[in-house]
Amino acid sequence: MRPQARSQLALFFILLCPVNIIGLWWAVGSPLVMDPNSICRKTKRLAGRQAELCQTQPEIVSEVAKGARLGVRECQFQFRFRRWNCSSHSKYFGKVLQQDIRETAFVYAITAAGVTHAVTQACSMGELLQCGCESPRSRAPPRPAGTPPTDGVRWEWGGCGDDVEFGYEKSKQFMDAKRKKGKSDIRTLIDLHNNEAGRLAVKNYMRTECKCHGLSGSCTLRTCWRKMPQLREVGERLLQRFNGASKVMGGNDGNTLIPVGQNIKPPDKQDLIYTAESPDFCLPNRKTGSLGTRGRPCNSTALDVSGCDLLCCERGHRDETVELEENCLCRFHWCCVVQCKKCSVRKDLSLCL
């Protein structure tokens, strides 16, 4: 396994799994909060800037762990209808990380984005001593479209803007494994490129939010601040990049990446890149990290990637009625709890053969 993939896989095992069952399963969505001291005790599997951050700022590592979990969970949402569904099965997932395919590119990007998002949000919530709200800007906030310049409303930066620069730097420090000076390889360049694409999917899409102040609903003063996009929005944007990912090869100097094919523009910093074509993921194959699609629910009427023809690899499907438990009869109790009962619901499903 190449060093970059080994570092990333070690990171996932350390950050996404409860300490007592590392290597057995991933606790994606687990309510357990990782103890940063437990994470840092395992930094012998990490190196360089990762180990340094773990030793000096373990509270940030706790947010890194949260961001990594959020990233993998978002990956599973975005790929829920695809043949490869970002399964958290460690033996298979590790095989995917060893390949330079589109799916690997997305995993690196969404994980780096998740870490950026989580650390930045912790700053805004006052959960980290090293950071807080974004520093006031010197330039004036932008005016909403159609607002005349002489409307009499005063504008200023205020509120608590998200300090995305801090989250960006900590994500870069932890997610980009240290490389030896003067040495590089094409695979490492690709992985670092995709990490950066994930971070930029957060950093480059900050939005301005404003609030009016004044008597009787007037807007004599408008304060504005900068907010990150929702992680779901980041995931959707990276999925678009996944669909349009660029295949590249290494240049002769060993430090550049060249797009494969004629009349293809070089990928920019926000594009995802890869070097090898993906397997079809139709049948189980440990070598490629494929779990296959047998038994997966599909949409018998859809013509997109969730349709039975594509998801089942034209093997056909069967219709089955299953009984599921869902929350029902939910009631809000003051203050502030929602209590629900469990109800049995019968659903008709189409499952891949």
Rank of each mutant, 00 (worst) to 15 (best):
M1S: 15
P3R: 12
R6P: 00
I14T: 10
L15A: 11
C17Y: 02
W25S: 10
W25C: 15
W25A: 08
W25K: 15
D35A: 05
C40Q: 05
T43D: 13
T43L: 13
R45D: 11
A47I: 12
C54L: 05
Q57E: 05
P58I: 02
I60E: 08
G67H: 00
A68L: 08
L70D: 13
G71M: 04
C75I: 09
Q76E: 10
Q76Y: 03
R83H: 12
W84P: 00
S87C: 01
S88G: 08
K91E: 06
K95N: 15
L97G: 09
Q98A: 15
D100Q: 14
T104F: 01
A105I: 00
A118V: 06
S124V: 06
G132H: 06
S135R: 11
P136F: 08
P141A: 11
T147S: 09
T147D: 13
T147I: 03
T150A: 04
T150M: 05
C160E: 06
C160K: 04
G161I: 01
D163K: 00
D163H: 13
V164C: 02
F166M: 12
G167T: 06
Y168I: 11
E169A: 10
D176M: 03
R179D: 10
K180T: 07
K183Q: 06
S184V: 09
S184D: 03
I186C: 12
N194C: 15
L200D: 00
N204M: 07
R207F: 04
T208C: 09
C219S: 04
C219H: 01
T220W: 03
P229D: 10
V234R: 07
R237W: 09
L238K: 10
R241S: 11
D253T: 10
N255V: 09
P259L: 07
I264S: 01
P267G: 02
Q270N: 14
I273M: 01
I273K: 00
A276F: 05
P279L: 10
P279M: 07
P284L: 05
P284F: 14
P284G: 05
T293Y: 03
R294H: 06
L303Y: 15
L311K: 07
C313M: 11
G316T: 08
L324S: 09
E326C: 12
L329V: 14
R331Q: 12
W334G: 03
V337M: 02
V338T: 07
V338H: 11
K341A: 10
S344H: 13
S344L: 13
K347Y: 14
S350W: 08
L351K: 03
L351N: 00
L351V: 12
